[in-house]
Computed example of a mutant assay.
Amino acid sequence: MTTSRTSGYRLSGARVLITGAGSGIGRRMALEAAQRGAEVVVWDLDDAAARGTVAAVTAQGGTARCLAVDVTDRQQVTRAAAETGPVDVVINNAGVVTGARLLDASEDSIQRTMDVNVMALFWVTRAFLAGMITRGRGAVVTVASAAGWTGVARQTDYSASKWAAVGFTESLRHELRADGHPINTLVVCPYYIDTGMFAGVQTRYPRLLPILKPDEVARQVIVALEAGRQQLVIPPLVRWVPVLRVLPVGVFDRVLDALGVNQTMDHFTGRAGDLAAGGQPPAKGGSTSTRESGLTG
């Protein structure tokens, strides 16, 4: 086995592809990357939103272009990748949330969650990874979630998808190491972010588990990318959740309950903007949203 060595990725002059960058932290990461001299390529299902990000980047003097892409469609991804050309960094950011109990969520919404949050990671990364390997340098970033560290009530499909996103990134890291390719991977696991994706969520101890500010999360992701980090978990308390798994399940559950983790979704009202866009009201407190977005949490 050959172990590769990876280092930070200087963004000045790099081409950075960000999926779901039409809004949320995707747009903010585009702005952060552009400020560091990167050429940004925005992929988003919403063409108008993607163009809005390009306008925001160019307004601050950066360089950006966009394509309307459904990252769950393999043929669209293949065509868009050919049009985009080689990229140095892929940031898999597109994500959706249903926020319903397992029996309340529709089959279509569950399938969409898994397609956007999991399968798109494979299609988008595969489209650009070979080029990175040929050039001998690159980075793959996956925006997962704190839900990728522990399951959360009323997020069965979302939590499962984010566990898969963490597993995807860690397995890819080992694969690249084993084959001796100096391509860095970074998995990002933030707690809830104040982008409207989880409208109404509440946190019991805001100093320990605060609702995160999107600008700060985006900044930390780009800083971690340039530093060559392989894992970013915010806030720091979330990092200790896997350690607590050594406790008996009943004790672990009581710790989560004491922190109010399973109660955060009690007042979830659905992602902001979905109902105005013609979506259906939440079923028993769960959103039926399935529109792809740059938001995550």
Rank of each mutant, 00 (worst) to 15 (best):
A130V: 12
A130H: 13
T195V: 09
A164W: 01
T125K: 04
T142H: 06
A178N: 12
V141F: 06
A165V: 09
P210K: 05
L186F: 06
F128V: 03
I211Y: 11
T156R: 02
Y205M: 14
L172C: 06
G196V: 03
A160L: 11
V152P: 11
L212M: 12
P182I: 07
A144L: 08
D179G: 10
P190G: 00
D179R: 15
P210H: 04
L212A: 05
S145N: 01
A139N: 07
Q155K: 05
G131H: 00
L212I: 08
A160K: 10
K162R: 03
V152N: 15
Y191V: 11
T150G: 10
L186H: 05
E170P: 13
D179N: 13
A139M: 10
F122N: 13
L186Q: 03
L209P: 02
V188T: 05
T125C: 03
L121S: 00
G200I: 05
R154T: 10
V188S: 03
V124R: 02
L176A: 04
A127R: 02
I133T: 07
T142D: 02
E170F: 14
P190T: 00
C189Y: 06
G138Q: 08
Y158A: 05
A130C: 10
G138I: 08
L212W: 06
D194R: 14
V143K: 02
L121P: 00
V188W: 03
H181V: 02
L121K: 02
Q202G: 09
W149Q: 15
V152S: 14
R135I: 08
R126S: 11
F128N: 00
D179L: 15
R154I: 05
T142C: 07
T169N: 14
V143M: 12
W123N: 08
Q202E: 15
A146D: 04
T185S: 08
H181G: 00
A147E: 01
V187R: 09
A139P: 05
G136K: 02
M132V: 01
G167W: 03
E170N: 15
W163E: 02
W163Y: 14
D179E: 14
W123L: 13
M132I: 03
F168P: 01
L121F: 02
M197Y: 05
M197A: 08
T125I: 06
P190F: 01
V187F: 10
M132T: 01
W123F: 15
T203N: 11
A178K: 14
I193T: 08
A139G: 07
T150H: 15
Q202A: 13
F168C: 05
V187S: 10
G136C: 01
F168L: 05
Y205E: 09
P206V: 10
V141Y: 04
D179P: 04
G196I: 03
L208D: 01
A146G: 11
D194Y: 09
L186D: 01
Y158N: 06
Q202I: 08
V166S: 11
F198R: 06
L186G: 03
G148H: 03
L129H: 00
M197L: 14
P182V: 05
T203P: 09
G131V: 00
R137L: 05
A144K: 08
R204D: 04
K162G: 00
A130N: 13
S145Q: 01
G151P: 06
N184V: 07
